[in-house]
């Protein structure tokens, strides 16, 4: 059994004069919730379109369940994935149930037995004869996911699934994703630029910028990278750096009076040592680097390169 559900290798996509993807290499492990992070226009949706067969790469290749995109059996691999790309693809003049029946027909599933379960799972079991055109945005999004769930896929690709949803809708979708991942062992690839929300779900991350993956890491690795720091302001920065060097503590000088310390120092020891060098502490503050600032620093770094 392949460890990776999806692997891309040096994927390029060019539209006339614009390179949407510039050699994307990424790996989505089985069972993961893979947060695909990038600004608008970074290439997230383009990559998802390629994976779903809506578009064709200009160069490079990808594998779905170990089958290459040019292999004629790729359609068999695609049968194992479900996708909601940008807006949910639903028949607006049909009810939720009819929409699912339609997808079952497309898949050639002979019985409609699983439909009630799917509707219940996404919380649309009580919509009756209400047409999809009368659904709220959140309901449409859930219906889109329900359609993607037809045929029991083990890999779901969701492109900006919480875009435009109200806070309640966001929580609903988040809980649904976590439930599907936990109970049905479905692997997720979720693209989003709402990083705070993604950080509540993702087990793995891929950061994309200007059509290139700039970093790929697990949630644990990210947590280590988003280390806590203590911001300290003093009257004599040279005294501070000497003391920190003596205490063997990692730090970064911000300006001529401020520095970030990447550890939890023994405050009594630090204050005493600074007092001995006639250096006063003006302020001291603990701070977290969140996913957003980490992403920004990553992008900044990539641009500087």
């Amino acid at each position: 059994m392949e460890y990776y559900v999806l692997q891309t290798k040096d994927l390029y996509k060019k539209y006339r004069n614009f390179n949407a993807l510039n050699g994307v290499t990424m790996n989505v492990p089985r069972g993961a919730i893979y947060g695909f992070v990038g600004k608008n226009g970074a290439g997230k949706t383009t990559l998802i379109r390629l994976i779903c067969g809506l578009q064709f790469p200009s160069k490079g290749e990808y594998e779905l369940y170990g089958i290459k995109n040019k292999d004629k059996n790729i359609s068999q691999s695609r049968r194992r994935i479900g996708a909601v790309i940008e807006t949910p693809s639903i028949y607006l003049d049909m009810t939720a149930e009819e929409n699912l029946k339609q997808q079952y027909r497309i898949l050639g599933v002979p019985s409609f037995d699983g439909i009630d379960d799917i509707l219940k799972l996404v919380g649309l079991d009580n919509t009756g004869k209400k047409k999809a055109k009368n659904f709220s945005l959140g309901m449409r999004q859930r219906l889109g996911i329900a359609i993607a769930l037809c045929g029991s896929p083990d890999f779901l690709v969701l492109d900006e699934p919480i875009n435009g949803l109200d806070p309640e809708g966001i929580v609903e979708i988040r809980e649904l994703i976590l439930k599907l991942n936990k109970e049905r062992k479905i692997t997720f690839l979720i693209s989003s630029h709402i990083l705070d929300e993604l950080s509540k779900l993702a087990t793995h991350y891929g950061f994309i910028d200007q059509g290139k993956i700039i970093k790929e890491m697990s949630a644990e690795e990210l947590e280590q990278s988003c280390q806590k720091s203590v911001n300290i302001k003093v009257t004599n920065i040279n005294a501070l750096t000497t003391v920190l060097d003596n205490m063997n503590i990692e730090y970064k000088v911000i300006d001529d009076s401020t520095a970030d310390i990447f550890a939890k120092p023994n405050l009594t020891q630090l204050v005493t040592a600074l007092a001995e060098k006639n250096c006063e502490i003006l302020s001291i503050q603990e701070q977290d680097e969140n996913l957003e600032s980490y992403f920004m620093s990553l992008i900044g770094g990539a641009h500087n390169d």
């Binding site: 790729i74 359609s75 994935i81 996708a83 693809s89 497309i106």
Partner: peptide
């Protein structure tokens, strides 16, 4: 327009 063509392609229909 409704994007429903994607539902056919994404599940592997030629």
């Amino acid at each position: 327009h409704d994007g429903t063509i994607r539902n056919k392609i994404a599940v592997g229909n030629k």
